[in-house]
Design a protein around this nucleic acid. Structure first.
Length: 463
RNA sequence: UCCUCGGUAGCUCAGUGGUAGAGCGGUCGGCUGUUAACCGAUUGGUCGUAGGUUCGAAUCCCACCCGGGGAGCCA
């Protein structure tokens, strides 16, 4: 008698095989003299239909306890299904109830729930079809990311979670301290005396591992981060989390074009991997969540991404017949409506916009000739907007120092970053992408809070 | 943070000044192949919270709390 996962049984199970299945009851249908129940163990979207004949031991008692949400173990024999909807089903010999789920109070019903409601029961929502599919796809994305980089010889770098540098300019920071907040030590001027804090200076949760991973790229050439990131920004949108996961590849001896090539190859690879490994889940999303999902995926995988400079993009937007709420003008950052127009209406496929004005981009991006623009790139995808942001980094010490001064960035904690330009500096480039936004993109889920198991947002750190 | 819409039964919602409603769910009964099972019956309420207006408030006014959508910021 062999313990098998449901996904394996549905794929490989043959009639006459004796199996043991363990999982959670999704639904029960009682008829006179027998009953059906569907058991799901998380291994697949579809559950296994179990047939319970009234001649099994303790039929009446068991049936009372087999309710939606209960955990059970079924031992029996696989048989070809007489009904429609499944090829194979399990004819039970014995049933063990592990844990009951009182139908009067169990919040998940055999019906569709709103995602807003499911968020209030985040500890249970993974037992639903949609969230189950989301987290299987999320896992596949993570696997695909590592596989992609590992196949290319990139090293996975664990950059610090705690940082004393607040100069990345990527948003508000969470402070890390072991001070007693009711009794903050003060210096003679009445200011908080951080020299007494754990790190001897103000410390924060990381908003990006990029600066550190650049240092590692200067030793291993090709590296990437994949880890948690924190932003204390008071953003209440369907695309923002206070705690999220970010992927940041960094390549030495690489320019902006190589960066674009990697971003394009990366996205195509992830989509292909998920389509190959989670076809059932993707089919589900395409049917119930976003009917153009497969179309979008195929669009991503089969088309060359369009590549335009920022200057060209602005020209195209100015020529557009469409009226924008925010007028376009060289020098401004592109608004979401502009990005959407480029990707969704004009090119109808992913667009990489490059060489943005230096005034709207970060200090570390490489200054282009003419010194008006920097070697930045944003990948804009239909239906989601900016999904990847990256750049070639400034590898020239004098120019980087000048840029830091021009932008009034506090340079003391950046000494080591500048050292990288002092000793064996090379052209290098990389990009960052939010993992949850990638999962959103691939699943079609509208709200980012529904693609991470336990979302952290302003005023919400439950579970 | 700003704009906007909303909060009524376990869930999804209707009810716009005069006795609190529906569907689904739950419960009970029926049904020999169901699969969002079906059929019948039944159960179910601090109308977000606290004030105010009124003979009378789920409904009108004020404040606050919570949620959705959009914007900004960004990934």
């Amino acid at each position: 008698m062999e313990f098998r996962r449901v996904a394996d049984i549905l794929k490989n199970g043959q009639p006459e095989e004796a199996v043991v299945v363990k999982g959670w009851v999704r639904t029960k249908r009682e008829l006179k003299g027998f009953a059906f129940t569907e058991v799901n163990d998380g291994s697949s979207l579809a559950g296994l239909q179990v047939v319970l004949d009234s001649d099994i031991p303790d039929y009446e008692a068991n049936l009372k306890q087999i309710n939606t949400g209960a955990s059970i173990e079924v031992t029996g024999t696989l048989v070809a299904s007489q009904g429609k909807g499944q090829k194979i089903e399990l004819k039970a010999d014995t049933v063990i109830i592990y844990g009951e789920a009182d139908p009067e109070t169990y919040p998940l019903q055999k019906k569709r729930h709103s995602f807003e409601f499911l968020r209030e029961i985040s500890h249970l929502r993974s037992r639903t079809n949609t969230l189950g599919a989301v987290f299987r796809v999320r896992n596949a994305c993570a696997t695909a990311i590592h596989q992609f980089f590992q196949e290319k010889g990139f090293l996975w770098i664990h950059t610090p979670i705690i940082t004393a540098s607040d100069c990345e300019g990527a948003g508000e920071l969470f402070t890390v301290t072991n001070f007693n907040l009711d009794k903050l030590p003060q210096d003679k001027e009445g200011k908080i005396d951080y020299s007494q804090d754990f790190f001897g200076k103000p410390a924060y949760l990381t908003v990006s591992g990029q600066l550190q991973v650049e240092a590692m790229a200067m030793a291993f050439q090709n590296v990437y981060t994949f880890g948690p990131t924190f932003r204390a920004e008071n953003s209440n949108t369907s695309r923002h989390l206070a705690e999220f996961w970010m992927i940041e590849p960094e390549m030495a001896f690489c320019d902006l074009e190589g960066d674009q090539n990697l971003a394009e190859e990366f996205l195509k690879y992830i989509f292909q991997y998920v389509l190959d490994n989670c076809p059932e889940d993707i089919e589900f999303f395409n049917k119930w969540i976003n009917k153009s999902l497969l179309e979008t995926a195929n669009n991503i995988m089969s088309n060359e991404f369009e590549r335009v400079t920022y200057t060209k993009a602005v020209e195209l937007l100015e020529k557009a017949s469409k009226k924008f709420e925010f007028p376009v003008e060289w020098g401004i950052d592109l608004q979401s409506e502009h990005e959407r127009y480029l990707a969704e209406e004009l090119f109808k496929k992913p667009v990489i916009v490059t060489n943005y004005p230096k005034g709207i981009k970060a200090f570390y991006m490489r200054l282009d000739e003419g010194e008006k623009t920097v070697s930045a790139m944003d990948v804009l995808a239909p239906g989601i907007g900016e999904i990847i942001g990256g750049s070639q980094r400034e590898e020239r010490l004098d120019i980087l120092e000048r840029r830091i001064q021009e932008m009034n960035i506090e340079a003391d904690s950046l000494w080591w970053y500048l050292d990288l330009r002092r000793y064996g500096s090379v052209p290098h480039a990389g990009f960052g992408l939010g993992f949850e936004r990638l999962v959103q993109f691939i699943t079609g889920m509208a709200n980012i809070r529904d693609v991470i198991p336990f979302p952290r947002t302003p005023d919400n750190a439950d579970f």
